[in-house]
Amino acid sequence: MNIHGHKVAGELVDRETRCKHYYSKKDIIAIKFFCCQTYFPCFSCHRSSGCQNHAVWPKDRFDEKAVLCGSCGTELSIRDYLACHSQCPECAAYFNPGCSLHAHYYFEMT
């Protein structure tokens, strides 16, 4: 699905990147997976896509844009996303703060 000019794959529910796995009002980000360079709403959608090369973003690449705000379409660098306190720096939309519990599925956290 094309969302704000970006291809987002997965089991999408709406145009703000919510999917069948995560669909609260604040579940409005998609993350570009390092392994396939494709945006997905969540790790479950990525897993079901069949990508066999799952890899997380290495810390030395955290300046790359890999998080898409489903509200306004702004792409955030990983560093900016991790520091944004669950709010888009461009449109002020709130992101689900619970996503931080899954950061290790996407980013090198150790």
Rank of each mutant, 00 (worst) to 15 (best):
L68M: 08
S100W: 10
P97G: 04
Y94I: 13
Q37A: 08
P58N: 07
L76F: 09
H54I: 03
A93F: 09
S49R: 05
M109F: 06
C88R: 08
Q37H: 10
S44I: 15
I31D: 03
E90S: 15
A103R: 07
F43A: 13
L12A: 05
S44V: 13
Y39T: 03
F34I: 03
N2M: 12
H85V: 02
Y23K: 05
C35S: 14
E11H: 14
F33V: 13
P89G: 09
I29F: 06
C88I: 05
C84N: 08
R61S: 12
W57V: 13
S71M: 06
K32L: 01
Y81P: 00
I28F: 09
S86K: 05
N53D: 12
F33K: 09
R79S: 12
E64I: 04
C42Y: 05
K26E: 15
N53P: 09
H4F: 03
Y39N: 03
V8R: 02
F43M: 07
S48N: 13
I78M: 01
T110V: 13
P58D: 06
A103G: 06
D80A: 14
T38L: 03
K65T: 12
D80Y: 03
C19K: 08
P58K: 03
V67C: 02
I3F: 12
C35L: 04
I3K: 11
T74K: 10
T17Y: 00
S77G: 03
A30M: 01
H54W: 10
C42L: 04
R18D: 01
P41G: 09
R18W: 04
W57G: 02
C72P: 11
C88Q: 06
F33Y: 14
R79E: 13
Q37C: 01
N53C: 07
A55P: 06
Y81G: 06
H6N: 12
D63K: 14
S71E: 12
C99N: 09
N2K: 14
R61I: 02
N96M: 08
A92Q: 14
D14C: 03
M1C: 11
N2A: 06
K59I: 10
K26F: 07
D14I: 02
K59Q: 15
C72G: 03
G73Y: 11
F34G: 05
N2Q: 15
A93M: 07
V67F: 04
